[in-house]
Simulated scan of single mutants.
Amino acid sequence: MVGILSDIGNVRKINEDSVGYYKNEGFGVYIVADGMGGHNAGEVASKIAVDTIIGYIKSLNDLEDMEGILIHSIKMANRKIFSLSKSNDGLVGMGTTITACLVKNNKMIVANVGDSSCYVMKLNGITKVTKDHSLVQQLVDEGSITEEEAESHPNKNIITRALGTNEFVEIDTFDIELSDITKVILCTDGLTNGVNTSEMYDIIFNNNNEESCIKLVELSKLKGGRDNISVIVFEGECEDDRN
């Protein structure tokens, strides 16, 4: 069972996040995207990203090169968004984050651009797989600020990479073995800005995937919900008896 939910939050007038997944007996692809650009441009960018990546991967007969396929699909989405932004004055400057997982057998490839996140959960804890492409993360890496200072930094939401803002995009990928992983969590920063990993773990450990998404969004909104909030929770290979 896959849990999936996207919520406008408490403050925003438009939900610029997009989420989606496709799963069959051979593979699964799961995506969260956080659009930007004002008016409805962010919503357009994030939807193009999700639809393009899932559509391309569904069209293939051979998924042997999982990393190459995921990278190619994201680059396709980048070109579509960039091209559309150049051809429509109302969409100038639009872009989106992307975090996507391609799962086959016991292997998962994670790809990300921006500050949406992927976490993996084991029976004894939760770990972040992706690394944010953000100004604040850059400051942490340089040693200019601490992880604690990053949590409340005023420029926390400034990202250094996005899909669709340039003709070419740099994509980070991660190769994950799923044998000892119970759950995989994808989310936009609307969730992680308010909900910490301990809270995330407790909710997901004690609920099924659909209920987890509902409770995570509810907690995020209870703690402010200033941004759109999107989350996907799906099974790893090490399944427990609650789902």
Rank of each mutant, 00 (worst) to 15 (best):
L102R: 07
L70G: 12
S85L: 12
A45I: 04
I69Y: 05
D62F: 10
A49Y: 02
D17G: 05
I54D: 10
T97Y: 14
S116E: 06
A100I: 02
I98S: 04
C101D: 01
L60G: 12
S18H: 03
K47Y: 09
E64P: 01
G93H: 02
T96H: 03
N40T: 14
K75D: 10
D17L: 06
I57F: 10
S73G: 14
T99Y: 00
G37H: 07
F82G: 05
I74D: 05
K23Q: 15
D34G: 03
I31W: 01
L60Y: 01
K58H: 07
E16Q: 15
R79G: 00
Y30C: 03
T97R: 14
K122H: 13
M36C: 09
K86E: 15
D115I: 14
S73R: 00
N105G: 10
F82V: 08
I31H: 08
V29C: 13
C101I: 14
L84I: 15
G26T: 10
K80E: 10
L70I: 13
K47R: 14
G93Q: 09
N105W: 06
L123P: 05
V50R: 11
L60M: 04
D115W: 10
I48C: 05
H39R: 12
I98R: 05
N24Y: 11
G42A: 07
C118F: 08
G37R: 05
D62S: 09
D89I: 12
N24F: 10
A45G: 05
V29T: 06
N105C: 04
Y56T: 06
N78S: 03
S59N: 14
I57T: 04
M66W: 07
F27A: 11
I31T: 03
V19Q: 01
A41F: 01
V110E: 01
V29A: 09
V44S: 04
Y30D: 10
M108F: 05
G37M: 03
N24E: 07
E16I: 00
G38Y: 02
K86R: 15
Y56M: 08
K104Y: 04
A49M: 09
G68H: 00
L102V: 06
Y22D: 07
N24K: 09
S85A: 15
S73M: 06
A33T: 08
G42D: 05
D34R: 01
L102S: 11
G93N: 00
D115R: 13
A41R: 03
S87Q: 15
M94D: 02
Y30I: 12
K86V: 00
G28H: 12
L84E: 11
M94L: 11
G114R: 04
D65A: 13
I109P: 03
M108W: 11
N78L: 04
G114Y: 03
T52P: 03
I81W: 01
G20Y: 07
V120T: 14
K86F: 00
A111V: 12
I74F: 03
K23S: 14
I48K: 00
C101T: 13
G93E: 13
G42W: 02
M76I: 12
V92P: 02
G90W: 03
N106D: 15
L102M: 07
S87R: 15
S85V: 06
V32A: 05
N112D: 07
I53W: 04
K107E: 03
V110W: 06
G95Q: 12
I81E: 02
K107V: 01
M36G: 04
I48Q: 02
